[in-house]
Simulated assay, not measured.
Amino acid sequence: MCYNALVQDKAVILELSGTVHVQDIADLKQILAQYVAEGKHSVILQLENVTYMDCSGLGFFVSAHKFLQAVHGVLMLSGARGIVRDLLRITKLDTVLLEEEDLLQRRPGGREVLA
């Protein structure tokens, strides 16, 4: 797994790419904790370039969601496709976790969540 981070005020967009396996989860948790410690409580995980993810990735989404909720933050997913999208649908996590597109449709002005 590779990632690229784009930081905007109190938010961060983590663009993940490649495959996400169990051995990547500790790194993802550390990255998330670092940004939250810096006051970045809105996190968008850009999944467009993730080609494969095992169940540990789903577990990370749930734990990251709970972690951010505890600090009054939000986790959003964006661009999931293929097997990643299928996993989200099969597990019904697509109904629990916010997808960026859903949030933008619900909020007037769209991206002010990143401010």
Rank of each mutant, 00 (worst) to 15 (best):
C2G: 02
C2N: 09
Y3F: 14
Y3G: 07
Y3T: 08
Y3W: 14
N4F: 10
N4R: 12
A5N: 03
A5V: 10
A5P: 00
A5G: 00
L6G: 10
L6P: 09
L6Y: 15
V7D: 09
V7F: 11
V7R: 10
Q8N: 05
Q8D: 09
Q8L: 11
Q8M: 06
D9H: 08
D9N: 11
D9M: 13
D9T: 15
D9Y: 11
K10N: 07
K10D: 09
K10I: 06
K10H: 13
A11V: 06
A11P: 05
A11D: 11
V12L: 14
V12E: 04
I13H: 06
I13N: 01
L14T: 02
E15D: 10
E15Y: 08
L16W: 04
L16D: 02
L16T: 00
L16Q: 06
L16R: 05
L16A: 04
L16V: 03
S17I: 04
S17W: 05
S17C: 08
S17A: 09
S17P: 00
G18K: 00
G18Y: 01
G18S: 04
G18M: 06
G18H: 02
T19G: 12
T19Q: 15
T19M: 15
T19L: 15
V20R: 03
V20C: 04
V20E: 04
V20K: 05
V20S: 04
H21W: 14
H21A: 07
H21E: 13
H21S: 13
H21I: 09
V22C: 13
Q23W: 12
Q23F: 11
Q23M: 06
Q23G: 07
D24Y: 05
D24W: 12
D24P: 03
D24C: 13
D24N: 09
I25D: 05
I25G: 03
I25K: 05
I25A: 02
A26N: 14
A26L: 11
A26Y: 07
A26H: 14
A26F: 09
A26M: 06
D27A: 14
D27K: 13
D27W: 13
D27E: 15
L28N: 04
L28M: 02
L28Q: 02
L28P: 01
L28Y: 01
K29F: 06
K29M: 06
K29V: 03
K29G: 01
K29H: 10
K29T: 04
K29Y: 07
Q30L: 14
I31F: 07
I31R: 00
I31L: 04
I31W: 02
I31S: 00
L32M: 07
L32G: 01
A33S: 08
A33N: 08
A33T: 05
A33F: 03
Q34L: 12
Q34V: 09
Q34A: 07
Q34M: 05
Q34P: 00
Q34S: 09
Q34T: 13
Q34E: 10
Q34W: 11
Y35I: 03
Y35L: 03
V36R: 10
V36N: 01
V36L: 10
V36Y: 03
V36Q: 03
V36F: 00
A37N: 10
A37C: 10
A37P: 03
A37E: 13
A37V: 13
E38N: 11
E38T: 03
E38C: 08
G39L: 02
G39A: 04
G39C: 02
K40W: 08
K40L: 01
K40I: 07
K40H: 15
